[in-house]
Design a protein around this nucleic acid. Structure first.
Lengths: 343, 343
DNA sequence: TTTGTTTGTGCAAACGTTTTTGCAATCCCC
DNA sequence: GGGGATTGCAAAAACGTTTGCACAAACAAA
């Protein structure tokens, strides 16, 4: 049997309540008693039972995360790993652990969240993706349960979230291509119901409009955050009668797909097609050519999310519901030619 | 306040114990009562409080994971993310969640484990890296606490683990290069205290010896699982008076570093240097040239670890302490030339 | 001194479950 | 229909904490 607070109490010659108070640094405990009790605790290797503790205190010191359903997809992307790292590091620093659970079906995700919330298993929840009209978000709001969203929620701005200014970021990316002399610029988007896809598309459009450039509807294609999508998009674009000379791509991984397809077809980057994408994962600079990409501070997104959520849980009402992590355009070879040969 | 078992009991007109028994499918409960109680539970949105439950049952249905200290390093590598995915997916499938915590210092890792174990926070622990003489392993063994190691532990073979046959894998990789006509083969290793580094080095040596090939001591260099290491190793090799014509590299990420350096120096792969590495992360086939790599089944490693640990926790004593996940050599362009020009 | 405040500690009641024990009621077999 | 076995449920004791309340002792103010 594990050593309990009673064992410590007995050995130290005090009552369990005193031991408990020593544990929580209660002010009205004498220096001497505290010392003595701590000594005994060390001696006996005492660690308080977290279940018992949280049963009465109603705090778990745990943050919950639900792996989005097609976890495969997300995990392929460096984004997720880096995000978790930020979340966990900061959580640990504040004495919180991170609980991960996987919803094995569409409905399962909501069930998993429900279980965590109603079962009082976690103190707060971190959400990784936001789609329109998300039932999970609706549920959490209706329960008034603390949660934070990485990304933002278009349907409701009274939600704690940490996000990039994706509209601006995409604007910047597009503007960069324009400043390189491109006029026919395409956009490879992600799943249309994700906020991040919508925002980046929006930024692209704004830049094009502001510069008075034509936007053919066939220059915008949607896909997943997967290489295959990039591959498909590429072959679609390159078969167009009037093909773009540059692309803004919603995610590095997708860009790798584009790149691969171009290589197979004998096209060259940036000469035949210039590319700028998002996320700046570690491998962006390793590909050939190295990828121009918007660094969105993935680690920092996770880190901040953890931080803000914990503060919120602890009662610090935030000044603003939406915190923006700054982005940075990293220009590399994939966008450094001015005008493609065949333009 | 949340709805408790008592609330359900009252509304259903039975005692709390009956509700509990319905919850756990106790045999001696009438069909009718069970139906009625379940109805009320649904109606009231009841979810049992996991803390209370595990306080008395001494089960948490949670698996613990401690992020190895320089988490940055691990996370850069796709390995970790894919591993987590395997672990969590399988855990969820069995009704378990996964708790992640980060040790923020060398000592902190052990403390974190201690807290999880002594605080009865988890039912078992999954360890991701094994070095020689690991204090965490010693602790867990001394506590007789259920845990599993991904990798294996050279100091003690009475430990549950899931691993690849890294010796054989490395042997295969080396043999492949030899069969391509290479005779001067170098090896880029990882941190020397990690079992995985040792095993792979061993396999390389065996293959070289069995084929009667010379092994210059300077053909073996150690590093981290980081690109930088590969970069450094490459420049070291290429400055050797007698340089190798092929390398076995302990990790894909490291190989990317090698590749980058070679490109910068104007060397070509596989013409000037052939490469085979380990892990076969998603991007191995996207690099140029695509990387030959040993696929070690990362997802499966995590998946199996979860599975075995849960079985063990539930009392199934395993037939074998060490489960081997099969590997597969994926040959791509980086090793498909026979003899480099300048040999 | 008396009174009032502060300080240090113990008692006991929670927290929401599971589980052992016990006790009716029902069943089965002769 | 009498005996024992079986079935269906309730009461109550845990599990290891935290915390409000009580209270004695020590101290400060009058």
């Amino acid at each position: 049997m594990a050593v309990t607070i009673k064992d410590v109490a007995k050995k130290a010659g005090v009552s369990p309540s005193t031991v408990s108070r020593v544990l929580s640094n209660h002010p009205r405990i004498s220096r001497e008693t505290a010392r003595k009790v701590k000594e005994v605790m060390d001696e006996m290797g005492y660690h308080s039972n977290i279940m018992a503790r949280s049963l009465v205190s109603n705090k778990t010191y745990t943050l919950g995360m639900v792996l989005p359903r097609p976890a495969e997809e997300l995990f392929q992307n460096h984004f997720f790993a880096e995000n978790i790292r930020g979340i966990t590091t900061q959580a640990s620093r504040n004495g919180y652990d991170v609980l991960m659970t996987a919803g094995h079906s569409e409905q399962g995700e909501l069930e998993a969240v429900t279980r965590l919330v109603k079962g009082r298993r976690v103190d707060g929840i971190i959400l990784l993706q936001s789609r329109r009209n998300d039932p999970i978000i609706r549920f959490l709001k209706s329960e008034a349960f603390p949660f934070i969203l990485i990304g933002h929620y278009a349907d409701d701005d009274d939600i704690l979230c940490v996000d990039n200014d994706n509209v601006q970021a995409s604007f910047d990316a597009t503007q960069h291509l324009i400043s390189q002399g491109h006029e026919r610029i395409g956009f490879v988007s992600g799943p249309p119901n994700l906020t991040v896809s919508q925002d980046r598309l929006e930024g692209y459009k704004r830049a094009m409009e502001e510069n008075g450039l034509r936007m053919l509807p066939e220059w915008i294609v949607e896909g997943e955050f997967l290489q295959e999508s990039g591959y498909r998009a590429m072959s679609f674009f390159m078969n167009l009668p009037e093909r773009p000379t540059a692309l803004v791509v919603v995610d590095d991984l997708v860009t790798f797909g584009v790149l691969r397809g171009l290589t197979e077809l004998g096209f060259r980057v940036p000469d035949d097609l210039s590319l700028v994408s998002f996320n700046n994962i570690a491998l962006a600079e390793l590909s050939s050519p190295p990828l121009s990409s918007i660094d969105i501070g993935i680690y920092q997104l996770g880190y901040m999310a953890s931080q803000l959520l914990i503060r919120y849980i602890q009662g610090d009402k935030p000044q603003q519901m939406r915190v923006i992590v700054p982005h940075r355009l990293i220009v590399r070879e994939s966008s450094l030619k001015t005008i493609p040969k065949w333009s």
